[in-house]
């Protein structure tokens, strides 16, 4: 049980790091946006994992269940990030569309050179 949780935590951290390295190392704007989504998926998974530490039952009170409930606080906190992530992604994609129309490329270095006086 404890070992499985540690393994899962390692996988979740690997997902977050993959997304993070994608954001800072990839040059393409689309790749950056996709890596940001990967990173936010990892963060959401980490919050779910943290809330599962207290117990494994869904935090909805019921008579018949026995066992410990999962912690509802991290789940409620991260629900915000899911919705905000969706709207931020729509906004970022539109921004990338505008940039790609003004300079016919998605490479950040090209776009930056185009705007450097």
């Amino acid at each position: 049980m404890q070992q499985a949780a540690t393994l899962l935590e390692a996988c979740v951290f690997a997902t977050i790091l993959c997304g993070f390295f994608g954001i800072i190392l990839k040059k393409n704007l689309m790749m950056k946006i996709i890596s940001m989504d990967v990173m936010s998926t990892g963060v959401i998974a980490y919050y779910v994992l943290v809330s599962a530490r207290a117990g494994l039952l869904t935090p909805i009170q019921a008579e018949a269940k026995s066992g410990r409930y999962a912690d509802p606080v991290p789940q409620a906190v991260i629900l915000t990030a899911i919705v905000i992530g969706f709207s931020i992604q729509a906004l970022m994609l539109v921004g990338a569309m505008k940039l790609a129309r003004d300079n016919p490329t998605l490479e950040t270095s090209e776009i930056e050179r185009h705007y450097t006086p």
């Binding site: 909805i60 009170q61 509802p72 606080v73 409620a76 915000t80 905000i84 969706f86 709207s87």
Partner: peptide, 28 residues
């Protein structure tokens, strides 16, 4: 309400949820 996550979002963290909805609207 039996669903503790709903209870948290719409009661304990209601202040936060207001701005979540506002941010979603502004993004659209």
């Amino acid at each position: 309400v039996p669903n503790a996550v709903s209870g948290l979002i719409f009661r304990n963290r209601l202040y936060d949820t207001i701005f979540e909805v506002v941010v979603f609207t502004i993004a659209i």
